[in-house]
Design a binder for these strands. Sequence first.
DNA 1: ATGGTTGCGAAGCAA
Length: 263
Amino acid sequence: MRLATWNVNSLGARLPRVLAWLAEAQPDVLCLQETKMADGAFPAEAFAELGYEATHHGQGQWNGVAIVSRLGLAEVQRHFGGTLDAAGARLLAARCGSVLVHSVYVPNGREVGSEHFVEKLRFLAELRSHLERSTSPEDLVCVCGDMNVAPEDRDVWDPAALAGATHVSPEERQALQAVLDWGLVDALRAFTPAAGVHSWWDYRGGAFHKRQGMRIDLVLLSRPLAERCRLALVDRNERKGERPSDHAPVLVDLALDELGPSG
DNA sequence: ATGGTTGCGAAGCAA
């Protein structure tokens, strides 16, 4: 099973690129964030033409998440209560084949200490609570998306330059770690210990070409899935060319064949 | 140097 996540920064603006990438990268499941569209505008037919079912949780101008799957979609959940709903259309879950997939767009937080920052910490805390209530770390569970937190200093281009900024504060990292501590593994870090692997680069100032980015888009796998993960990468080529998103897709390959028919 | 760029939507906000 090939699974990917991509903050597309408007699916309306990015649809041609997303469709081309689906055809090229051939993921079985693609989680999208920041679709920035209402459910009525979601281009389900375009995905269907490529053999994918899709489910979308949108609100219009901001946020919006989707799961696109050619392994089927079951048990779709788009309402989770509390901050997970109040913060906007930021979370969507569905079973794709044997895997319970979550597409997440964690609030940005804006400024450390702001009300938006508090909401971000609460969102992450409630995400962990939702996992506790709804499933088990012994099951095949994936939580992926734009976490808007760089887990460690090696995940940002220059920790000193970002001191005091959002995405790297101890509070945010602890809140993300609490999600991981439920029983999830950061897939890319299981393969790539080095610094310099990023998934987001500011549009401004040529940040991408200066390699001034952060790794904030994560694929988090429960242990049974992490044990079967054979590849994890950021497709940074998707940050190049005409009208890119400011995020690149993150992709993993999971060897689920040995699980039998349900895999 | 509070800059710079993109998207939405039609000015300013969010990221």
